[in-house]
């Protein structure tokens, strides 16, 4: 039918933009990953074809493993509390039997931290938790500690700060998305369950949770992608060093370091590895949810 040509017209801008600004860069990344090319002082070495050399040197490097672990730990530390809090909050806010007041205000408040430039937020925490910063001064005034606690000299306190910041910035966003899903559920389903004598918990686990699964999946996937991209907060908080002892160095900070030193070959290989990890993780999430849907 002639009208269906319009469909092609509507998807044209997207397709062209995608091909130029995403597909083409992917080809460039792949191409570069097979060439040795870096700068030694002011002299450029390469580019010359070297097969899988970049991959071999990266994978045999224990640093990569360490940075991957750091990223995963900090993501989980932030995401678990975030998703639990968001599901609970969204369930409460959408429960008409609770009849909460000030929901509008609360929604506005919890989304607020997401608006803050991550760099600004990290910079703020760097000031607040500095050795002479307000948090230490306050803790000493109250008498909890005698001398400043060096938050940025301890691996777990630095990681916790990163996770806490990520959680604070993103739980509002997640809550709003889940809440939109829960409010979109046909009210008659809920009312029917309630007439049949279901309590709030049963309504939640039997009606709401199964119906918001697509949105839950969407939230998990986007957060996963966001977690692998973790960069701004630890970068600013540790001035790009990933200290203490590079235990907060994320995979992207590592990539940034290589790109900054113009190690194009290694950067290319690292990008490809990063891509493969992302693809694998997303496939797992997708297949799990697909299996549940068929059950």
């Amino acid at each position: 039918m002639k009208r269906n040509k319009w469909g092609l017209f509507f998807i044209l801008p997207y397709t062209v933009t995608y091909l130029v600004f995403t597909a083409l860069p992917i080809v460039i990344v792949l191409y570069r990953s097979f060439f040795t090319n870096y700068w030694k002082g002011l002299k450029e070495v390469g580019p010359f074809f070297s097969g899988f050399d970049n991959y071999v040197s990266l994978l045999s490097d224990s640093n990569l493993h360490m940075y991957l672990t750091n990223t995963a730990i900090m993501w989980i530390m932030g995401f678990l509390p975030q998703i639990i809090l968001s599901v609970i909050l969204a369930a409460w806010l959408s429960d008409h039997r609770l009849g909460l007041k000030g929901v509008q205000f609360f929604k506005t408040v919890i989304y607020f931290p997401n608006l803050i430039i991550a760099a600004s937020f990290a910079s703020l925490f760097f000031s607040f938790f500095a050795n002479t910063g307000p948090v230490n001064t306050l803790l000493m005034d109250i008498g909890i500690i005698d001398e400043p606690y060096m938050f940025f000299s301890n691996t777990w306190s630095t990681r916790s700060l990163v996770a806490f910041m990520n959680c604070t910035m993103w739980f509002g966003n997640t809550t709003l998305l889940l809440l939109a899903g829960m409010l979109g559920i046909d009210p008659s389903l809920r009312e029917a369950a309630e007439v049949d004598g279901a309590n709030s918990k049963q309504v939640f686990t039997r009606i709401i949770l199964p119906l918001i699964r697509p949105i839950l999946l969407y939230v998990i996937i986007t957060s996963l992608i966001g977690g692998i991209q973790m960069f701004d907060v630890p970068q600013i908080l540790t001035k790009g060093t990933g200290n203490p002892g590079r235990t907060t160095m994320t995979i992207l900070m590592y990539l940034n370091k290589h790109m900054y030193s113009k190690n194009y070959g290694i950067s290319g290989a690292l990008s490809v590895i990063l891509f493969l990890i992302t693809a694998m993780l997303s496939l797992i999430v997708f297949s799990v949810s697909f299996r549940q849907e068929r059950r």
Partner: peptide, 23 residues
């Protein structure tokens, strides 16, 4: 198109950034 778009949803911009900056 739909399948490809959803699959490519997974590719973070940061992964293609080397090629993007080059381009």
């Amino acid at each position: 198109f739909y399948t490809l778009a959803v699959c490519f949803m997974m590719i973070p911009k940061q992964v293609t950034v080397l090629g993007f900056v080059d381009l």
